[in-house]
């Protein structure tokens, strides 16, 4: 079991309200990602669930029972920290076994669980090393190992991959997703990286200044963003926003169109422009086009285009993929 319910939860540090009243439902077995810009309160929210911070008001229910006042150890949640937070003077084996030792589990059973976890995480050869003798990715796996041996009802991850280099990050992302497939335990994952959110989540919670902007599956957020913030935050490269005449054409205050939903042509189209920077990725080409009154527009096109700085082009939006927003930024 691993359902978590937040009801009207708020959190203030002194006079500053970091989380205004917030409701959220996390279902059993779900992979939920909290995503949002830095400082929007993702970590705070996760720490409230973990019990490392006290809520200012509101209720937290875990598996249906009120856990608002429970100390962290009694919530049967396990957390993986950004800095890994391994115990530097203990071997990997002792690190992973620490929660079991604290729970007073007998040595044989604990050893069995440690070995099982080490096998899942490819750590068997490193059990006698200290954390200081491991690479970043291995340390991260030890931290995850320490979480899984407890067999918690949910895992909490706070930006676990942000200290890793790009290639390793992609690998660990896969490993964590696979771990979720194997364990089928609820996972709550915090990141500021929308790519991580999109690739890993069953359900994404977009946060902005402590407020939930939208909750939904990755494709729901991509196809039907509830407002301009979500539209701009989800998707890479970012959605283009236009105001004025082109928006008025569609009876909106502003319109948004994703870079991949603009068609490029050299001789005819809706919006003329001049190519600025062209980023050739091989599979794709990202073009920054200066379209005068409409500002700089991003276009994603095939890897084969042969366009360079200063070339004249025309852009045409796919009308079915156009997003319309009202003056307050809500989707029409």
């Amino acid at each position: 079991m691993g359902t978590i319910t937040l009801a009207q939860v708020t959190k203030s540090f002194g006079d500053v309200e970091v989380i205004p009243p917030l409701d959220l439902e996390i279902n059993d077995g779900e992979f939920v990602v909290f995503v949002g810009p830095s400082g929007c309160g993702k970590s705070t929210l996760l720490r409230l669930i973990a019990g490392l911070e006290d809520v200012t008001s509101g209720l937290i229910r875990i598996d249906g029972t009120d856990a608002t006042a429970l100390p962290p150890a009694r919530r049967s949640l396990a957390m993986v920290f950004q800095s890994y937070a391994l115990y530097p003077h203990m071997s990997v084996r002792k690190n992973i076994g620490f929660p079991l030792k604290m729970a007073g589990m007998n040595a044989a059973e604990a050893d069995k669980r440690i070995n099982a976890a080490a096998k899942v995480l490819n750590l068997t050869d490193y059990l006698d090393r200290r954390p200081g003798q491991l690479s970043g990715g291995q340390r991260q796996r030890v931290a995850i190992g320490r979480a899984i041996v407890r067999e918690p009802s949910a895992f909490l991850f706070d930006e676990p991959l942000s200290n890793l280099d790009a290639a390793l990050r992609v690998n660990m992302r896969l490993e964590i997703s696979e771990l979720h497939q194997t364990l089928k335990t609820t996972m709550v994952y915090v990141t500021h990286d929308q790519v991580e959110a999109m690739t890993m989540a069953d359900k994404i919670v977009v946060l902005h200044a402590g407020v939930i902007e939208q909750v939904g599956s990755p494709l729901e957020l991509y196809n039907k963003p509830r407002n301009k913030f979500v539209a701009g935050f989800i998707g890479s490269p970012k959605m283009n926003f236009l105001q004025g005449a082109p928006a008025a054409e569609h009876n909106a205050h502003s319109i948004g169109i994703r870079p991949e939903h603009l068609t490029l042509s050299v001789d005819d189209g809706a919006w003329p422009g001049t190519v600025g920077v062209a980023e050739h990725l091989g599979s794709d080409t990202f073009l920054h086009v200066d379209s005068g009154a409409h500002g700089i527009l991003n276009i994603r096109t095939s890897g084969e285009v042969d366009l360079h700085h200063g070339d004249k082009v025309f852009l045409t939006p796919d009308p079915a993929r156009l997003h319309r927003f009202d003056a307050s930024g809500l989707t029409l």
Binding site: A50, G51, L52, P71, P72, A73, L77, A78, M79, F81, Q82, S83, A85, L86, Y87, H89, M90, F98, P99, M102, A103, R146, R150
Partner: peptide, 27 residues
């Protein structure tokens, strides 16, 4: 002494005394 380590130990079920013995003293 690393704050996150203390919190990790707290989540791992270590009380004040255990944290002192297993984290603070070795540190």
């Amino acid at each position: 002494l690393d704050q996150e380590q203390q919190e990790a130990a707290e989540m791992d079920g270590a009380g004040v005394l255990s944290r002192f013995i297993y984290l603070t003293i070795p540190h």
